[in-house]
């Protein structure tokens, strides 16, 4: 599936009941679940989730039904806040999650009262401000995504692949952080990072991407390989747009003849 997306990490799930629409609904009291089938649409505040199939699982322990004060008539809302509440929703089949202008697609998603869990997500992380001209989307694929909404954090794990322009970054795990406006601020890649951009390749144990500065900082035995040049140091900063490289406490081997004919070369 190709879904262009943006995360919804910034906002916590609004409180209150979750609205749903579907073709059919099956209530299975013994299994303590409700199954929705066909064009499933779930919404809560500005959070909207669509898919082909959804299962709502009820909490095992029933909350005590609040006693209605004597004399007060039963209201419609009394039935909805009653003794059973959904612990989590699992949505499958072309799952699309949208929160305001931010969206995410995946094969499978789990919603509980705070977090959203997406299997095989394909996400585009956008930063709409402080970027000149058309913002370059950061596309992310992974086997698993957990949105920790209260912490404004998206945690990708297992075969994380990040694509931004002509740069491709691979790592076992990555966390994306957001500010209060839902703008991407930082990506933190851990557990071994491999960066490829055109002819150059860089590796390191960790990498941090600053979304505002658009630089990727490699640390943990970082190395840069570029047309025969090999650079290493304590830290390597890669400008993804400018293609500039800064190496702290640098060591390396440069082969000027490999760069003949390049713009700016002697």
């Amino acid at each position: 599936m190709t879904g262009a997306i943006v995360l919804l990490a910034a906002a916590t799930l609004p409180s209150g009941p979750l609205d749903f629409k579907a073709r059919d609904m099956r209530i299975e009291p013994q299994e303590r679940r409700v199954v929705l089938d066909g064009d499933v649409h779930l919404s809560r505040g500005d959070l909207n989730v669509t898919g082909e199939h959804a299962v709502a699982e009820y909490a095992k322990e029933q909350a005590a039904l609040p006693r209605r004060p004597r004399g007060r008539k039963k209201e419609a809302s009394d039935t909805i806040v009653g003794g059973q509440s959904v612990e989590r929703f699992t949505v499958s089949g072309n799952v699309h999650v949208q929160s305001g202008s931010r969206t995410a697609d995946g094969e499978h998603g789990v919603l509980d009262s705070e977090d959203v869990d997406v299997v095989r997500p394909r996400v585009v992380l956008r930063r709409s401000i402080a970027e000149e001209g058309q913002p370059t989307p950061v596309r992310v694929e992974a086997d698993h995504l957990l949105l920790l909404q209260a912490r404004r954090l998206a945690r990708f794990t297992d075969d994380v692949v990040v694509r931004r322009g002509d740069a491709v970054v691979r790592s076992p795990r990555m966390e994306a952080r957001y500010d209060g406006e839902g703008q991407l601020t930082r990506l933190e890649l851990r557990g071994g990072v491999d960066v490829r951009q055109g002819d150059r390749r860089a590796t390191g144990q960790n990498a941090d991407y600053d979304a505002k500065a658009r630089t990727l900082v490699l640390a943990g035995d970082p190395k840069l390989y570029d047309q025969g040049d090999v650079l290493t140091g304590d830290r390597i900063d890669l400008g993804l747009d400018t293609k500039e490289v800064r190496v702290e406490r640098a060591r390396g081997r440069l082969r000027p003849e490999a760069h003949k004919g390049e713009r700016g070369a002697p």
Binding site: L18, D24, P29, V34, L36, I80, V86, E87
Partner: peptide
């Protein structure tokens, strides 16, 4: 054991 509503359903479910 099963109660099924069909042909277009909508409603509210309380989240924990």
């Amino acid at each position: 054991s099963v109660i099924q509503l069909m042909d277009g359903v909508k409603g509210k479910l309380q989240m924990e």
